[in-house]
Design a protein around this nucleic acid. Structure first.
Length: 981
DNA sequence: ACCGCCGGGTGCC
DNA sequence: ACCGCCGGGTGCC
């Protein structure tokens, strides 16, 4: 009887083999989060086209996983999972299961497969129920989720609690569709089985013992909690690791700390978050999944330190310090390798795509490379290859002859026969070993862990920081170390796989990667040692091509560098975790069910789980963090002083004339209560005064040239025109909605300026009856006037052609610059103004006095910008000593540490804008004391602006909840104070 | 699966 | 014997 049974099983297996190939595709896609199809086809014929189309189909299915946003719970239904004994997948009490339609199933086109969190198939839904579900699922009426509350009682079937989720409008259709086939959805009240609790860590256990009453988070609490998600992720251990000798720059304490943490995360040991050891098994407390094998740990994480704390340096240190098995990257030094220089130069020609790389790129000859590979490494490589080919051979043999695998099967069959005694209730053995779970795990493990042949770190960054990486490598790698850094960018880049994977570092951009993703470039094909995503938050949209491309990369270790890890919502986090392959959340469904939905619904447990998760993989320090009681980075001192400027007699007379005129006009508006209606006019007057304070030639042709307005329409046109001129001169105006400097300014019909997104929000909330926040005029989107940023170029030409004259403020600046030069000619200065035309005026005296300078303003192309910054930052003797900087130019990331003196030529409305500007040189990397000089004209509108700045700062520190009325009042008060009314 | 179902063997009690 | 009953074989979709 025993023999007969054995034979029968073998026979059945053989018959089913063909179908099994198909089925495996389905189960495998779960296992790998849908994206690892290439590893999968152990059983497919090596028929390229069929494997190809199937893989495409599966990939397409994966991307269809809907974003469950806005889904509501329709109801629950108790169902049955059948066919348990045919599959290896096991389910623990309380574990979630996935339900996948299998329209290709040859026995039943309605089949619904059940898989556990790891993607191992557990069974099928009983066919009558499957028939009903198939309709719902195929028509996308609902997403069905399963949880197995009670454990497996027998080997053949088990109950499963199904919940149906979908859009409100489909609810009745779903309920009716199920009812028609005799399945009544339990829609009772606010769900009987606690949809929320089910997913949180207390899960089934808590439910069984007592009803846990959870008070959902308010949206505000949620927002706060979320904003703080990345705060305080300072590793408490102060383990510090010394960098390898090849790192030329000494690391600061917090950088050593980060290096230690990163090395630890790469040299894996210990369990990933939410896993614990339970006897023989590893158990995940979130999903209730358990496995015999040690779960995959994420090799890498998120380094989310504040900007300026040295993420780049730390990453370079990591590359050099932690190669394999905690040993430093083997690199050659100049002295030993002088004989190879010739080879190196040959390679250099073929590889460098930009002069930036030239000095670093490919200096290490290939001869040296091969000598570095220890026999030990080679051996491991061979081994992994063997296991891989063995696996394939086995698969092929199974098809050809049944002799070889019989023994294997028999053992398993015997195990199966021995039944529950051996099962221990948690893990059933499968009669066939065609698809042992260990194999897939092991193979992925050996790929990521034991494959020591990978050498190269791939760094992907936005184009804007590419040059920064090259600089930093040059700067921080020890001078006599030959590190192969290849810039994979430009049309003549070397696409040779062998070449790339022999480099130590390959740097490329997200765009290059996206481009290659489409036409199968080498980046996707190479097995990288490490992939580093710089500014990693750019991949937060999972639909973007570059995000998809990034997920396809094969690597043993993965890192995300980001100064701003989260922009708005929980959703954005999925992509980061998916890239890191944080299982099981790399599969969207588990992320949605375990984290995203609970958190967005205000479930505290869900939020806590998210926090724990993030904490495990993230290191974040801010500028204000401390290491062992000391501040992270001690910046050199900064002194800010105000230098009062006295106007000359003629200047004063001109100014007073304009001031009186303006005061009269504004005074009339105040008396009439029409300040806000004529706001553009007011701003134009103020602007005129501010410009007088700097230089008389700043004044553009003013609206007075336009002639007196006749009709209301003309008046409006004039006001809008005035506002346009105020903006065009570079003034940093404030948006009354966000109370910050305007970004993407638009002008309303009633001549007020706001940020485009701010006013768009006002319009969308107030719908048809939207009013201007300042004057309550009706506003419409169609009537908003765009203000194209940086459109003032040719005007500056006209000014320079006029006869140049000086001004008191110009004099004040020049005497400072001349004094500094005589004290220390190496000092570099930033000269900042809101008025780009003022910068142009300043060029003349700078040239006359023989200062070498560069200019950076918003009108410059990105390319020119980086060029200018590079020039200015250079420490060469002839490099420019002065940068003329437009206040609003450049993002926050701008690094101008070469300068130690800042001259703010004119005050801004928003003090934060000035601070931001100062921080561009007062930041990490600044070696000198920073000295800031603000020029303020005595007895002028500028002095009043400074006073208002102070008041505003106080206000910001005190409270935030200012109403529109407050804002309006404060605007008017500001103006009155400015004009001393 | 300690079930249900199928289909062959069988046939008074 | 065109049924009932018994008991072995069998078992997801």
């Amino acid at each position: 009887m025993y023999e007969e049974g054995k034979e029968a099983v073998r026979q059945r297996e053989k018959e089913k083999l063909v179908y099994k190939r198909v089925r495996l595709m389905f189960s495998r896609r779960w296992r790998f989060g849908w994206d690892r199809f290439t590893d999968v086809d152990l059983f497919t014929d090596r028929n390229e086209s069929s494997a190809e189309s199937l893989s495409q189909a599966i990939r397409a299915a994966a991307s269809e996983e809907p974003d469950a946003d806005g889904s509501i719970l329709f109801g629950h239904l108790q169902g049955t999972v059948v066919g348990l004994r045919y599959y290896t997948g096991v389910v623990n009490q309380g574990e979630m299961v996935g339900l996948v339609r299998q329209p290709q199933n040859p026995y039943d086109t309605n089949a619904v497969m059940v898989a556990n969190v790891y993607g191992y198939q557990v069974g099928h839904i009983k066919k009558e129920l499957a028939a009903a579900m198939a309709h719902v699922m195929d028509n996308n009426l609902a997403k069905v989720e399963g949880v197995v509350h009670s454990g497996t009682k027998n080997k053949f079937y088990m109950p499963v609690m199904l919940s149906f989720w979908g859009k409100e409008e489909n609810k009745n259709a779903v309920i009716e569709c199920m009812a028609r086939r005799g399945y009544k959805l339990n829609t009772g009240g606010t769900n009987p089985i606690g949809a929320n609790q089910t997913y949180s860590s207390q899960g089934a256990r808590a439910m069984a013992s007592k009803k846990v009453v959870t008070i959902p988070l308010t949206p505000e609490e949620l927002k706060n909690a979320f904003d703080n998600l990345f705060e305080g992720l300072m590793e408490s251990k102060d383990g510090k690791k010394e960098a390898a000798k090849s790192v030329g720059t000494p690391l600061l304490p917090h950088q050593k700390q980060a290096l230690s943490w990163m090395c630890a995360r790469e040299n894996k040991s210990g369990l990933p978050p939410f896993w614990e050891r339970r006897g023989e098994l590893y158990y995940n407390s979130l999903t209730c999944f358990s496995a015999k094998e040690i779960p995959d740990r994420v090799c890498g994480g998120i380094l989310a330190d504040d900007m300026g704390l040295g993420k780049t340096l730390t990453t370079i240190a990591l590359i050099l310090t932690n190669f394999h098995k905690g040993k430093p990257l083997p690199v050659e030094t100049c002295e030993e390798q002088s004989s190879f220089v010739k080879v190196a130069s040959k390679l250099k020609g073929s590889s460098s795509a930009s002069d930036g790389t030239g000095t670093l790129c490919s200096d290490r000859p290939q001869a040296a490379l091969s000598s570095v590979e220890t026999p030990d490494l080679v051996e491991i490589t061979d081994k992994s290859e063997k296991t891989e080919s063995k696996g394939k051979k086995k698969a092929i043999k199974r098809k050809a002859s049944k002799e070889a695998p019989v023994l294997q099967e028999d053992l398993d069959f015997a195990a199966a026969l021995s039944g529950p005694a051996l099962d221990s209730g948690l893990k059933r053995k499968r009669a066939s070993k065609t698809e042992p779970p260990t194999m897939s795990l092991d193979s992925s493990m050996s790929k990521s862990g034991a494959d020591s042949s990978a050498r190269t770190t791939l760094i992907i960054c936005p184009l804007s920081v590419l040059s920064n990486w090259l600089d930093q490598f040059e700067q921080h790698v020890h001078a006599n170390v030959k590190l192969n850094v290849y810039l994979y960018y430009g049309s003549d880049r070397n696409r040779c796989k062998k070449f790339l994977s022999s480099q130590d570092v390959v740097i490329t951009t997200y765009n290059v990667l996206s481009a290659e993703f489409g036409n199968k470039g080498p980046l996707i094909a190479i097995n990288w040692l490490r992939v580093v995503l710089d500014e990693g938050h750019v991949i937060r949209n999972p639909n973007a091509l570059m995000s998809k491309a990034v997920l396809e990369l094969t690597a043993q270790r993965r890192w995300i560098l980001s100064g701003t890890p989260i922009q708005n919502s929980v959703k954005d986090l999925w992509m980061l975790l998916a890239f890191l392959r944080l299982k099981p959340f790399d599969v969207r469904e588990w992320w949605n069910r375990v984290i995203q939905r609970p958190v967005t619904q205000g479930d505290r447990g869900g939020l806590q789980n998210l926090q724990t998760l993030i904490k495990c993989i993230t290191l974040r320090r801010t500028k204000s963090s401390e290491v062992s009681g000391r501040p992270l980075v001690s910046l050199p001192d900064k002194t800010v002083c105000v230098e009062q400027v006295e106007l000359s007699q003629p200047e004063r007379e001109e100014y007073e004339l304009a001031r009186k005129e303006g005061r009269n006009i504004i005074g009339r508006y105040v008396a009439e209560g029409t300040v806000l209606r004529n706001y553009a006019d007011v701003l134009a007057i103020l602007m005129r005064l501010r410009q007088y304070c700097c230089h008389p030639d700043l004044l553009a042709k003013t609206s007075s040239d336009l002639g007196a307005p006749a009709t209301p329409a003309e008046l409006r046109e004039h006001l809008i025109e005035k506002l346009r001129m105020v903006l065009a001169s570079g003034s940093d105006e404030e948006c009354s909605v966000c109370l910050d400097s305007v970004r993407l300014p638009v002008i309303t019909h009633c001549a007020h300026v706001y940020c485009r997104p701010c006013i768009a929000q006002v319009i969308s909330t107030e719908q048809d009856t939207a009013h201007c926040p300042l004057c309550r005029s009706v506003i419409k989107t169609s009537e908003l006037v765009e203000f194209p940023q940086e459109q003032m170029e040719e005007e500056s030409l006209r000014t320079s052609s006029e006869k140049w004259r000086t001004s008191s403020k110009v004099q004040a600046l020049m005497s400072n610059l001349l004094r500094l030069r005589s004290e220390d000619s190496s000092i570099k200065c930033l000269v900042v103004s809101q008025f780009t035309r003022f910068l142009t005026i300043l060029e003349t005296p700078l040239r006359e006095n023989g200062f070498s300078f560069v200019r950076l303003d918003g009108a410059m192309t990105q390319k020119r910008r980086t060029q200018v910054i590079q020039e200015f930052q250079s420490s060469e003797v002839n490099s420019p000593v002065i940068m003329l900087l437009s206040l609003k130019a450049g993002g926050v990331g701008l690094n101008l540490t070469a300068a130690s003196h800042v001259f703010l030529m004119d005050p801004a409305w928003n003090p934060a804008t000035e601070e931001q500007c100062i921080d561009r040189c007062h930041r990490l990397g600044q070696k000198r004391k920073v000295c800031v000089t603000k020029f303020i004209v005595k007895d002028s509108v500028e002095e009043n602006m400074v006073k208002i700045q102070k008041q505003k700062q106080d206000l910001v520190e005190k409270a935030f909840g200012s109403t529109t009325i407050d804002r309006k009042a404060s605007r008017i008060n500001d103006i009155k104070a400015l004009m001393e009314l």
